[in-house]
Nucleic acid binder design. Structure first.
Length: 485
RNA sequence: GGUCCCAUAGACUAACGGUUAGGUCACCAGCCUUUCACGCUGGCAGUAGGGGUUCGAAUCCCCUUGGGAUCACCA
């Protein structure tokens, strides 16, 4: 049987990182088994529609590199892939159930239902009391027909029997059993003509020939309802795999409040797509347990639903940062060129040469978590120094330094190859000639050229900045007696 | 509260019923050094508790405790 999985988000805003993880696992599973992945939009709640949400969702998935074979923007045999465009289908199946006596019409108002739930009954508890409310069962066929004919609002509810055991096998959790006594007569078709999630997802998964339903653990409690529906329709039940939740630091379900949860926020913050995917994939699973960095191909190759953890995983930004740093160190400059160019342009109002940016990036990529950080920790690479570290000057600019530097400038003026090796040997030679160590002299150089106490290797830095600029900064420093603090 | 799910260090995780319980982040120390990083070496720290089953349990079973999810005409 062909493996067909789906990612079925509701377009209520942006793609949640938990959703991305679910999408990723679906994707890995599909790729691993040479199957198909479907993107289906579950927009059956008209009260929660958000503009552009679908585009946002798709953009985030695209950014993450999660490709699907069928979806709203990718025609397939089983469309449409947006539930609000499939209303007739759901209605037809809801009526089929009514026909079979496995579902029924109900006409209660929300106030009546609220009232009913407050007064729990002997046999139904707080569940919908189908024996005491206004519905097809209590009103009778004739009255029901009359009400329907009058155009009155109605819903269709699932008829759940007493004392049956519903069980299903979850790939990650094993067998799960629930008594039908704990299952409510769920509404299948709402009064606005839209289906509820439960009806829509079962109908669609069947019609779209979904073989494996891989979704978040929050769906586990309602899965028995879905199983009941499959049985009522006489359809084959897909395999289920309920993924562990992504958690906040306090172990509650990952949510806003405690930081970003929208994928696009992470993207904007500057996380590399590959790093983010790598990190997310390892929340709930590890292919080998002996390393942390895996390429997408490796993730696909090793993916195994049965080895996915059962417990929820805390989303640890600190580790995410570390992973991002790992990727940053080995990333090809082309992948970050655009961002660093954009950020520096914005910050310093000028477009920098790509070759120059490449050099700067290589100088600092091991010192930052994000590309954009480079423009702040190494702002002196992009513009004149706007602030000198006074403490550093006091500590390293000793009496006599000025005279030494004036001599050093002459040495540098005579450099033909103003690059690392020559600068290094010439400076060492110079220091030695004065009976000093390189360390004694390199700090003042750093002060004059960068203004900061920290940075990349001094000679590499000078090489990138160039002879003219370095000499200019040194003379400026001396002439303006900046060391006088 | 009912139902369901879960439980290896602060966090993410590995471990055919047989390992000195392994790796990673964070943290601490040292090394490297031209500052800061990177890197390297070492360290701290874990099977929630109690019963079983077994020659042997992190692993299987039960109970307790703890955590989470879910109980809508939301998904």
């Amino acid at each position: 049987m062909e493996v067909r999985v789906r990612f079925a988000p509701s377009p209520t805003g942006f793609l949640h990182v938990g959703g991305l993880r679910t999408a990723l696992y679906n994707y890995l599973f599909a790729r691993k088994h040479n199957g198909k992945m479907i993107l289906r939009i579950e927009d059956t709640d008209r009260t929660r529609l958000v503009e552009n949400a679908i585009d946002n969702l798709i953009n985030s998935l695209k950014w993450a590199g999660i490709e699907y074979n069928e979806g709203p923007d990718k025609a397939g045999e089983y469309g449409p892939y947006i539930q609000s465009e499939r209303l007739d289908i759901y209605k037809k199946y809801a009526l089929e159930l009514v026909e079979k006596g496995l579902a029924y019409y109900a006409f209660d108002t929300s106030d009546e239902i609220e009232e009913m739930r407050k007064n729990s009954s002997e046999t139904f508890g707080t569940k919908y009391n189908r024996e005491a409310m206004r519905n097809q069962l209590t009103l009778g066929e004739d009255e029901t027909k009359k009400i329907l004919a009058s155009g009155h609002d109605f819903v269709i509810r699932l008829m759940v029997p007493f004392d049956h055991e519903v069980s299903f096998n979850d790939i990650i959790r094993g067998e799960v059993k629930v008594s039908t006594n704990d299952i409510d007569d769920q509404v299948l078709l709402k009064s606005d003509g839209f289906p509820t999630y439960h009806l829509a997802n079962v109908v669609d998964d069947h019609l779209m020939k979904i073989s494996h339903v891989i979704r978040g653990e929050e769906w586990l409690p309602s899965t028995p309802k879905h199983v009941l529906l499959y049985n009522y329709f006489g359809w084959e039940i897909p395999k289920f795999a309920h993924l562990p939740l992504l958690l906040n630091k306090d172990k509650s379900k990952l949510s806003k409040r405690q930081g970003s949860v929208a994928v696009e926020d992470f993207r904007e913050k500057g996380y590399l797509k590959d790093a983010f995917i790598n990190f997310i994939a390892l929340l709930g699973w590890n292919p080998t347990g002996d390393r942390e960095i895996y390429s997408l191909d490796e993730l696909i190759e090793y993916f195994n639903l049965e080895k996915v953890n059962k417990g929820g995983a805390v989303f640890d930004v600190q580790k995410l940062d570390w992973v991002n740093q790992q990727y940053l160190k080995s990333v090809n400059f082309n992948e970050v060129a655009k961002e660093i160019s954009l950020v520096s342009k914005e910050k310093f109002g000028k477009l920098y040469d790509s070759e120059f940016l490449n050099k700067v990036f290589n100088l600092f990529k091991e010192r930052v978590t994000f590309v954009s950080e480079i423009t702040s920790i190494a702002d002196y690479m992009f513009s004149d120094i706007n602030e000198f570290d006074k403490d550093y000057i006091q500590k390293k600019w000793l009496p006599g330094t000025e005279e030494i530097v004036i001599e050093l400038i002459k040495v540098y003026e005579n450099c033909n190859n103003f690059e690392h090796d020559e600068l290094s040997s010439k400076t060492k030679e110079f220091a030695l000639g004065l009976g000093k160590k390189l360390g004694d002299i390199i700090h003042p150089i750093r002060i004059m050229i960068t203004g900061k106490s920290t940075g990349a290797g001094m000679f590499e830095t000078m090489e990138v900045l160039g002879k003219t600029e370095c000499l200019k900064r040194m003379s400026y420093f001396i002439q303006n007696k900046i060391y006088d603090v």
